[in-house]
Computed example of a mutant assay.
Amino acid sequence: MSAHHTLGPSSVGSVVLDIGGNTGALIIVTGPEWHGREIEISPKDQDPPLRTHVAVRARHVSSGTRYSAVFPALPAGPYVIWRTPTEPAGTVVVAGAAVTEIEWWQQP
Rank of each mutant, 00 (worst) to 15 (best):
P43T: 06
P43C: 07
K44W: 06
K44R: 11
Q46W: 09
Q46R: 09
D47A: 09
P48C: 07
P48N: 08
P48Q: 05
P49L: 14
P49K: 05
P49T: 05
T52V: 14
T52G: 08
H53A: 15
H53G: 09
H53L: 14
V54H: 06
V54K: 01
V54F: 14
V54A: 12
A55R: 00
V56G: 08
R57C: 15
R57P: 11
R57D: 12
A58G: 07
A58Q: 03
A58T: 06
R59P: 00
R59N: 15
R59L: 15
V61R: 09
V61G: 13
S62A: 13
S63C: 07
S63A: 09
S63R: 06
S63N: 10
G64K: 10
G64Q: 15
T65S: 02
Y67S: 08
S68K: 01
S68A: 15
S68Q: 15
V70G: 01
V70I: 12
P72W: 05
P72G: 04
P72D: 07
A73V: 08
A73E: 14
A73K: 03
A73Y: 10
L74A: 03
L74H: 02
L74D: 03
P75Y: 09
P75R: 08
A76S: 13
A76Y: 09
A76D: 04
G77S: 09
P78Y: 03
P78F: 01
V80W: 00
V80Y: 00
I81K: 02
I81L: 15
R83V: 06
T84Q: 07
P85T: 14
T86V: 09
T86N: 07
E87H: 01
E87T: 08
P88S: 03
A89P: 04
A89Q: 07
A89R: 02
G90Y: 11
T91H: 10
T91G: 10
V92S: 15
V93C: 11
V93H: 13
V93N: 13
V94A: 02
V94N: 01
V94G: 00
A95G: 06
G96C: 01
A98C: 03
V99R: 01
T100A: 01
E101K: 13
E101H: 09
I102C: 08
I102M: 07
I102T: 10
E103P: 13
E103L: 08
W104M: 10
W104R: 10
W104D: 14
W104N: 13
W104I: 06
W105E: 14
W105S: 14
W105G: 12
W105H: 14
